[in-house]
């Protein structure tokens, strides 16, 4: 059902259009701010409902505020995404065809990698094998910079991974394109790129780093939740109270 929106909804949406993605915590603050600005009653625990109301009017426009987890810190985030695969979506209007081809190649590299990352060397090499107009080395580097600026990719020490915004927005696409390859976290069942993998060859389940942290927290000897083999990886610290647990 689509609902009537107030100015507090509209302001929230406008801010989302500016920032693209926000953590759940920030979203709550923003929700409160929007209600105060427009003197509307605010129920802090009803953010979901508030966003649902906006979505009811956005979805016919092929847009949505979608929730998803950050692989970095395990926190829930909201991202404003396009839901249409048409030729007028954001990426296609911002990037040339050959740049999109390289972006798809980067996705290939990331999805097929063990650790959810692609090195700049591998990316430069795959730029050499493009079918559309080839990108020069400098152009590829410029493109990578832009993809990071536009929050599609994240970079750290010469390696690139998909940003949280990108994972949330592209999830349907990635699941459709990489049906056989895409990994799913054993704990939260979302797609997993940066994760730990069970070393038992007949098991091999994946768990997001923040999910590992939460799952094994306080356990003396970590064992795989699927095959019960010893979990040989380093267990990261839980970063900040996970907002999901409050819900």
């Amino acid at each position: 059902m689509s609902r009537q929106l107030g100015d507090h909804h509209r302001r929230f949406l406008q801010t989302m259009m500016t920032i693209g993605i926000t953590s759940e915590k920030e979203a709550k603050t923003l929700y409160q701010h929007c209600c105060e600005t427009h003197k509307t009653q605010c129920a802090p625990d009803r953010l979901e409902e508030f966003i649902e109301a906006i979505n009811s009017r956005l979805q016919p426009m092929f847009m949505q505020i979608r929730k998803g987890m950050s692989e970095e810190d395990g926190q829930q985030h909201y991202a404003l995404v396009n839901t249409a695969e048409t030729d007028i979506t954001r990426m296609t209007s911002d990037y040339a065809d050959n740049e999109l081809e390289l972006f798809r190649k980067i996705m290939d590299l990331i999805v097929s990698s063990e650790n959810g990352k692609a090195s700049s060397t591998d990316i430069l090499n795959s730029a050499d094998m493009m079918t559309s107009k080839k990108l020069k080395k400098g152009e590829t580097q410029q493109l990578l910079l832009r993809l990071v600026q536009d929050k599609w990719l994240c970079e750290s020490q010469g390696e690139y991974n998909l940003s949280t915004r990108c994972i949330i927005e592209m999830e349907p696409y990635i699941r459709a394109m990489y049906q056989d390859q895409v990994k799913v976290c054993h704990i939260c069942h979302n797609m997993a790129f940066q994760c730990q993998i069970c070393e038992n060859p007949s098991c091999g389940i994946k768990i997001h780093n923040p999910c590992v942290a939460r799952y094994f927290k306080g356990r003396m000897e970590p064992h795989c939740p699927a095959c019960d083999d010893f979990w040989p990886h380093e267990i990261p610290e839980v970063r900040e109270l996970h907002s999901l647990s409050k819900r």
Binding site: M17, T18, G20, R90, S93
Partner: peptide
Amino acid sequence: MTQRKRPSNTLRLSQS
């Protein structure tokens, strides 16, 4: 001064 913005990517490639 900063309030409203839209989907934040902006590159002018196809635009130019």
